[in-house]
Amino acid sequence: METSSTNAQSGAIGILDETIVLEIARFHPEKDTEPSYDSFEVPLRSDWMVLDALNYVKDHLDGSLAYRWSCRMGICGSCGMMVNGVPRLTCETLLTSVAPGPVRIGPLDHFTVVKDLVIEMDEFMGKLQKVRPWIVRKDNYQPKREFIQTPAQLEVFKQYSLCINCMLCYAACPVFGLDPSFTGPAALALAERYNLDSRDQGAAERTDILSQHDGIWDCTVIGECSEVCPKHVDPSMAIQQYKIDATKDWFKTWLMPWGNK
């Protein structure tokens, strides 16, 4: 294993005369039955994120390391990993914030690992699709121009539209960890985003789907999803708001069955 040398560049911006050890989870599905951890010593730079350190490992120490990343600016949601046991976007986590190390980096909790730090996303994508995350119109209205929406109407759902599908909330959610059939925070926040959209008419359809046992009612309001969300979407609040609407709907259904549909 190589040991990086930063002294040669000492004095340049961001260079510290130190190194930090990364303990990175490794798992090869065709060879391993259990994940293991490999240690790598990388330069500790004040202008590096954890993702930069992973890229250093990939470029200089072990090219076989597998992980996802893309934008490097907290937009694409690809580089979510467990950093010292906490779900974080590695492109937004300063390396110095986890110094002196060692820093343990693993794949997101509660997901099947494809290889090393790469997780299986198909199940999550299925959950997103299940909540019908698009504008639903009952009237089959074909607009000839844009729907008009006031800033106040936009403000109602804007927060829930900021989700980047990084899945940190799923890794943080103990309920999803115990019961993978739980629809989960991001998908439920996305459903609420469309329910609150003044242009949408699909709330009843979504309630039929999301008011089932594996929908909103599995959430036990632990709130870790909102704690780790890098975009402050607050999925926990979205789910509680949804519960209020679903409860009103449930009582209406039972107390006024003739008024339903």
Partner: peptide, 15 residues
């Protein structure tokens, strides 16, 4: 409605 029938009864307890 089938989907309606599968709705959880949790709202009562939740209230």
């Amino acid at each position: 409605m089938a989907a309606h029938a599968r709705r959880s009864n949790r709202p009562l307890g939740w209230v």
